[in-house]
Nucleic acid binder design. Structure first.
Lengths: 268, 268
DNA sequence: CAGTGGTCTAGACCACATG
DNA sequence: ATGTGGTCTAGACCACTGC
């Protein structure tokens, strides 16, 4: 039942150290696409051929190709083959991480609570939060300052629920970390976000120390609880001169150092 | 060496039809996270436990968890376990596909070429395209109209290279399909994109039939050839009232019909 | 029919974390 | 030492395409 001596396989290929085989294959294929060795629209070698070239098992080749699929570099059709995709603007994805990182850039970033009040929901608020009009809600206004300069103005409506001590936590948020994760916190599992370009109104312009009508990003959010019911509706107004979303389109070799101090850790 | 009769396994589990096992597991785990059965910060069952629960092999469980990892729903730490991630604004990703789809929404969408000229590169253009100032470049202006209404204004500088018949193709672009894929085409493998909010200048406002200073999205692009050299620099000015980027954050069950007319086809 | 990608198995060994 | 995730194998069968 031994089938294979334990040392047999490690003797077969001495690549245990360093980057994994699938990553090596991903990088190799990505590089060939980037350099035009495999042309857009052209067919990649079959999995059987790649298996022979790289000396790995079918699953390892498939794993590599799956990654290229996720990245939009290739397309596969069962029974036909794997093909290089040509560039498509629509494939571009922008990560909000960029923006929140820019918020946090700088030594002195803090959140200022401008107002916190309990008021009956307007028709608009009631509709979004799916409440009866007039239901009591919390209205919050915050200003995010970096190096003393206001860069983001945040307004938020939160359902007032005595059974949930969410409000207490809300009021304590005066750090950026709290605003990014505390607002949504460990209690809210999902949300909808949208970004629009807009011109600053009088109040927002004054608070952000910009001329009225200055351009801004508006990041709107609706967070819901485990039952799918909306709990919070709000929007961040971000000075346009302070933020941009950027991304790369097309093949991009990772080139990660094989034995570096890499922490894949994500704090829960 | 036969080890197993060919029919033995298919008798073991009759789930060959319908959705694959890994997808079934992804949906099950996603649902549990969405409903709070697995709480943010909490630990998921170990892979060994899940393997027993779902009756699959280790690789299949790992594939499912890898997908949850990609979607940012869980985090894994070697030696410790798999944990539910709490919501993080920074995790949100916005797909440009939404915007280009909105461009194409409607029956009559077409691209109008306003101007095409050859001119010496200004210092700014030369710098971005890495040319000597004064080198001849193509300057293009286009207007995208939907139902007769101008919604996007596009300006672009393209390097003038007699060895490449790129220009000829450029001038022929009068369809949306051409603008999205033809600009970049099969010849350009990579690009950099960025989005900013801005106010429309006099000319742009006039062309888009908006008041001067109206808000707009500016989608800037630099496309490069196989050698990594920039070939095209331009930007799309999009009326803010026509476009928005939106996305979902958190667990989202696919719920794909098992035996539907699903075409995973991506035209090369 | 042969060729291709898509899924899955039942193990193995490795690297890391904790006690 | 034990338990965890991370990688990998050497096959198998299925579904689809095209001749």
């Amino acid at each position: 039942m031994s089938k294979e001596k334990p040392a047999a396989r490690s003797a077969k290929r001495g690549r245990r150290i360093g980057e994994p085989a699938y990553q090596r294959i991903v990088n190799a294929l990505t590089s060939r696409i980037a350099h035009g060795i495999y042309r857009p629209g052209g067919q990649l070698p079959t999995e059987a051929q790649l298996r022979l070239e790289f000396g790995v098992s079918p699953m390892t080749i498939r794993r590599a190709i799956s990654i290229l699929l996720d990245r939009g570099l290739v397309s596969t059709t069962q029974g036909k083959g794997t093909f290089v995709r040509s560039l498509d603007l629509g494939e571009a994805v922008f990560r909000l991480q960029e923006v929140t990182d820019q918020w946090a850039a700088g030594d002195s970033v803090h959140v200022q609570l401008l107002e916190a009040s309990i008021a009956p929901a307007t028709e608009r608020v009631a509709h979004v939060l799916r409440l009866a009009p007039g239901t009591r809600t919390i209205y919050l206004q915050r200003l995010l300052l970096r190096e003393g300069t206001p860069i983001v103005y945040h307004r938020e409506h939160v359902v007032y629920d005595e059974t949930r001590p969410l409000i207490e936590a809300q009021l304590q948020i005066t750090s950026l970390e709290g605003l990014l994760r505390g607002t949504v916190g460990a209690a809210l599992p999902s949300g909808e976000l949208s970004i629009q370009a807009m011109s600053l109104g009088a109040r927002a312009a004054e608070l952000l120390r910009m001329p009225q009508g200055a351009p801004a990003f508006c990041l709107e959010h609706v967070f819901s609880d485990f039952d799918g019911l909306p709990v919070s509706w709000g929007w961040f107004l971000c000075r346009a001169d302070q933020f941009r979303l950027s991304t790369h389109l097309g093949p991009h070799v990772d080139d990660q150092a094989p034995s570096d101090t890499r922490k894949g850790e994500h704090a829960p």
